[in-house]
Simulated assay, not measured.
Amino acid sequence: MLDTHARKYVQPMFDKTGKWLLKKGLTANQVTVISFVIGSTTGVFYYFEYTWIALLVLWLSGFLDAVDGTMARNTKTSPFGTVMDVTFDRIVEISVILGIAFRHPEVQWALLLLSVSIIVSMTIFLTVGAVSEKQGMKSFYYQAGLAERTEGFILFSFMMVLEPFVLWVTLIFFIIELYTGFQRFFEAKRILQ
């Protein structure tokens, strides 16, 4: 929801950073890889109880993930860049989930439910993007929903910072993600039939 509706307020920051990185000679795909490398360390930092560093690398990778898309749209998008971006985003999320699971084994069952809900929601999102003739500002049809990447980062952050409530935040995240999956499924039925 925030990625769709609040983007206009932060887009100038992404534009400015993207232009600066392009002037430094970096490509959108290179920034995607940098974002991935930084973000995939989140779970490791969290597991070893460097919670604030985990939060920093998570949000830095998210920022660079938004910048790389801006860079691609200002230069030339590539289908492989889109594949890298979507794949690396999921690996960063997996890193966070694994870091939390290994540090808090008592909530692994809830993290499994959360993972299933993310898989279902992303499957619908990516399938609709692949089969839809609609095009958005991204290289495929972007299906908005209650839980988009920013909401996920906020909830992952709460899971890491509010350790006594990690189970409850995980279950709330699961419900929000499940709702988003249903929301996207019914939108798909409406726009694809």
Results as ranks from 00 to 15, higher is better:
residue 145 G to N: 04
residue 68 D to T: 10
residue 130 A to T: 15
residue 110 A to Q: 10
residue 41 T to I: 10
residue 192 L to D: 01
residue 123 T to C: 08
residue 109 W to D: 12
residue 58 L to F: 08
residue 28 A to C: 02
residue 78 S to W: 02
residue 82 T to Y: 11
residue 172 I to V: 15
residue 155 L to E: 01
residue 41 T to K: 04
residue 47 Y to G: 11
residue 165 F to Y: 15
residue 146 L to I: 15
residue 100 I to G: 00
residue 69 G to T: 07
residue 127 T to W: 06
residue 47 Y to E: 05
residue 81 G to C: 07
residue 120 V to W: 05
residue 171 L to C: 06
residue 5 H to E: 11
residue 156 F to I: 14
residue 14 F to D: 03
residue 193 Q to M: 10
residue 33 V to Y: 09
residue 7 R to H: 14
residue 60 L to S: 11
residue 67 V to C: 00
residue 83 V to Y: 13
residue 160 M to C: 06
residue 140 F to R: 07
residue 150 T to E: 01
residue 187 E to V: 05
residue 10 V to W: 09
residue 123 T to I: 11
residue 74 N to V: 09
residue 154 I to F: 12
residue 164 P to M: 11
residue 157 S to V: 10
residue 65 D to W: 12
residue 136 G to K: 08
residue 185 F to R: 00
residue 143 Q to F: 04
residue 183 Q to T: 05
residue 72 A to C: 06
residue 153 F to K: 05
residue 12 P to D: 08
residue 169 V to A: 09
residue 71 M to F: 10
residue 141 Y to S: 01
residue 106 E to T: 13
residue 20 W to E: 07
residue 150 T to P: 01
residue 169 V to I: 15
residue 168 W to V: 11
residue 16 K to H: 05
residue 136 G to M: 11
residue 25 G to C: 07
residue 46 Y to G: 08
residue 172 I to F: 14
residue 73 R to I: 06
residue 90 R to L: 14
residue 177 E to F: 02
residue 157 S to Q: 07
residue 36 F to T: 11
residue 174 F to C: 07
residue 3 D to W: 03
residue 164 P to Q: 11
residue 165 F to S: 15
residue 43 G to H: 00
residue 189 K to E: 11
residue 108 Q to R: 12
residue 41 T to P: 06
residue 53 I to F: 04
residue 181 G to Y: 03
residue 125 F to W: 12
residue 42 T to L: 01
residue 106 E to W: 05
residue 112 L to M: 04
residue 114 L to R: 07
residue 86 V to T: 12
residue 8 K to R: 10
residue 165 F to N: 15
residue 1 M to K: 02
residue 26 L to N: 02
residue 186 F to I: 10
